[in-house]
């Protein structure tokens, strides 16, 4: 599914958090959002949940306005893995993932079990199924919440810093799975190296505005990185044709 954000404006406490942001996540592609802390990346993703008010702008899902869909319908269109997804109650990993199974409509007990186990296996965490979510590490929890988005059976997933808490092996593992899934992925990333390597399109945000967009090699140019992040770095092509990001450290 194609997601288009058009002129999104969000205010909070009299302060402009997002100012006329335009962004398009193309069907079947991985679109990354990068930018310094507090530039509005997470707020932009949260507008897709329909629970935070927008001052202006519109979100289009395959051309249809998001405002016209119920929460239930939206959950049938895309999954969302938040930055703060967590749980203070005693649920097992299985129970957490099974919460998404109802979204597919009426499913028999067996198929619910199949859906949940398939999602857990896809993320290679079936061994965690009976573990209490509170006893899992931050990284393991993240994997469970991503498995839940997979269990929704949707072709689009929105993720807010999914690589947080994950070790480097699992960061690559998650991003590989997302890329291979051929789903439409809208993802906030902090690691510019991962963003350069995995994303088809990047949006670079600064102070509530999407200041640059394009392919990773276009967006991660030296002057742009310096202007937005205040550091020296740039993306360059490797021998195998993929992109790498070089950061100059003192």
């Amino acid at each position: 599914m194609k997601i288009e954000f058009r002129d999104i404006c969000v205010d909070a406490g009299g302060k402009k958090i997002l100012h006329e942001v335009n962004l398009t996540a193309e069907c079947g592609k991985m679109t990354g959002i990068i930018g310094p802390n507090g530039c509005g990346k997470s707020t932009l993703l949260k507008t897709t949940l329909g629970i935070s008010p927008m001052e202006a702008g519109e979100i289009l899902l395959d051309g249809a306005s998001l405002a016209g869909f119920s929460n239930k319908k939206l959950a049938q269109l895309y999954g969302y893995v938040g930055q703060d997804s967590d749980c203070v109650f005693d649920f097992t990993a299985y129970e957490i993932v099974s919460m998404a199974a109802h979204i597919r409509g009426k499913t028999s007990k067996k198929s619910e079990k199949e859906i949940v186990m398939n999602s857990l296996e896809q993320l290679e965490i079936p061994h965690l199924k009976d573990r209490n979510i509170q006893s899992l590490s931050g990284g393991e929890r993240k994997m469970v919440f991503i498995a839940r988005a997979f269990a929704q059976g949707v072709d689009t997933i929105i993720l807010d810093e999914p690589t947080n808490h994950l070790d480097i092996k699992h960061q690559l593992f998650i991003l590989d799975i997302l890329r291979k899934s051929k789903k439409t992925i809208l993802i906030v990333l902090h690691d510019l190296r991962l963003a350069a390597h995995y994303c088809d399109t990047l949006y670079l945000m600064k102070q509530g505005k999407a200041v640059y967009s394009g392919s990773p090699s276009e967006v991660l140019q030296k002057d742009r990185v310096r202007q937005v992040f205040g550091v020296e770095g740039f993306a360059s092509e490797k021998e195998d044709g993929t992109l790498d990001f070089h950061l100059q450290m003192n």
Binding site: L49, N71, A75, Y80, D84, S85, C87, M99, I103
Partner: peptide, 22 residues
């Protein structure tokens, strides 16, 4: 009870899982 389970995941997650939270 199923919807109450979703509420236990927090407003954002509950909304993302199809619940009209408010």
């Amino acid at each position: 009870s199923g919807k109450l389970n979703l509420m236990m995941m927090g407003d954002e997650d509950a909304a993302a899982l199809g619940l009209s939270v408010k």
